[in-house]
């Protein structure tokens, strides 16, 4: 039946660790996760490893197998040579918890920062009508099982911890693309958000995310590049600008919605004004983007900067004049008291 195979599994925690050798039995038709389970049941009961579905559906069992980011439950042992040593390590991009388990909080933080779906104001539940061809693109991205392999392999954060602050990673680029392509999403500034807040510009489209995605989502071709192109539409393309001027009715401006909210994270609707008419609970548009370089200075020359003209001191996300609805100021209706 089974044969003995040589496994090297990384064991340790934040204080250090190393690859430990195991000889373990492997049967026909098994996957790497089965072998990890056998190790747990026989030689290493406290070997930490995440898993849930064992069917490539939940994205829990992400690990690196022979240096490649993979799902443990989707890596068949038959893909290795009989005498090949199989090396299993935790994801390298995230802080280690123990053994094969890493702290993937980074991803949840980024998820929380990505503005959510903005439902159209004029449709009640049950009134949504969408054509299959229109939802298909977004559906591709919704296949994502959040295994975070793409986040792990992306060299922008894998090799540069300091970029984690500015860079959301491919998983959240497809989320932005999904919403930007959603036929009924009422938020107009997803591309600007992707560029300014998610760090789309850090991606150099080297396609590793697409290579490792177990759901075979074409992350680069169908999400990142189209998003980059959409940013180009807005910022650089002369023909699109001209066209927009000539044909006012443009699809590019989102269907009949008011200009995007002030800040990327701003609500698309605001709480009702308080008793005194002032909307105290809304956040004032603050200079947000502060497009400064590492030294905290605004770039002086257009040449070295990513847009024409000097950057606005109010940040990238605020356009003037501010829509009156969004102002904190409330005009007094009492006369000269």
């Amino acid at each position: 039946m089974g044969t003995k195979r040589h496994f090297r599994v990384w064991r340790g925690d934040e204080n250090g660790g190393d690859l430990q050798d195991y000889q373990v039995e492997v049967n026909e038709g098994e996957v790497v996760l089965d072998v990890i389970h056998r190790l747990q049941a026989t030689q290493a009961p406290d070997l930490a490893c995440r898993w849930n579905c064992k069917a490539g559906k939940c994205g829990s069992c992400s690990m690196e197998i022979n240096g490649r980011p993979r799902l443990g439950c989707m890596t068949r042992m038959s893909t290795f040579e009989e005498n090949e040593t199989v090396t299993v390590t935790p994801l390298r991009t995230f802080p280690i918890v123990r053994d094969l388990v890493t702290d993937v909080e980074f991803n949840y933080v980024k998820a929380r920062e990505t503005p959510a779906f903005a439902p159209p104001a004029d449709l009640e539940p049950g009134e949504y009508r969408m054509q299959q061809v229109d939802v298909e693109r977004s559906q591709e991205f919704r296949k994502c099982i959040e295994c975070f392999l793409c986040q792990n392999v992306c060299h922008v954060v894998r090799d540069h911890e300091e970029n984690k602050r500015a860079f959301s990673g491919p998983r959240y680029f497809i989320r932005a693309a999904e919403l930007d392509m959603h036929p009924l999403d009422a938020k107009g500034d997803r591309k600007e958000y992707a560029q300014a807040q998610q760090g789309l510009g850090y991606c150099n489209i080297t396609k590793c995310c697409t290579e490792v995605c177990p759901e075979h989502i074409k992350i680069t071709d169908n999400a990142i590049i189209p998003m980059k192109e959409r940013v180009v539409d807005r910022r650089y393309d002369p023909i699109v600008k001209l066209g927009r001027r000539i044909f006012r009715r443009d699809q590019l401006e989102e269907q009949g919605t008011r200009p995007g909210p002030l800040l990327a994270q701003e609500p698309s609707h605001h709480a009702e004004p308080g008793a005194d008419g002032v909307k105290w609970n809304r956040q004032v548009a603050q200079g947000q983007a502060a497009a400064v370089d590492e030294n905290g200075r605004l770039p002086l020359s257009e040449f070295t900067f990513d847009r024409a003209a000097a950057p606005s001191p109010f940040g990238d996300d605020v356009t003037f004049p501010l829509p009156p609805d969004d102002l904190n100021y409330h005009h007094s209706n009492k006369w000269d008291t």
Partner: peptide
């Protein structure tokens, strides 16, 4: 059940569609 499903659409769900968009 129908109300609950429709509600999901307002949360952003994208179900497969019929020809008339339902």
């Amino acid at each position: 059940a129908p109300e609950r499903i429709w509600e999901l659409e307002t949360y952003g769900a994208l179900f497969d569609r019929t020809k008339d968009g339902k």
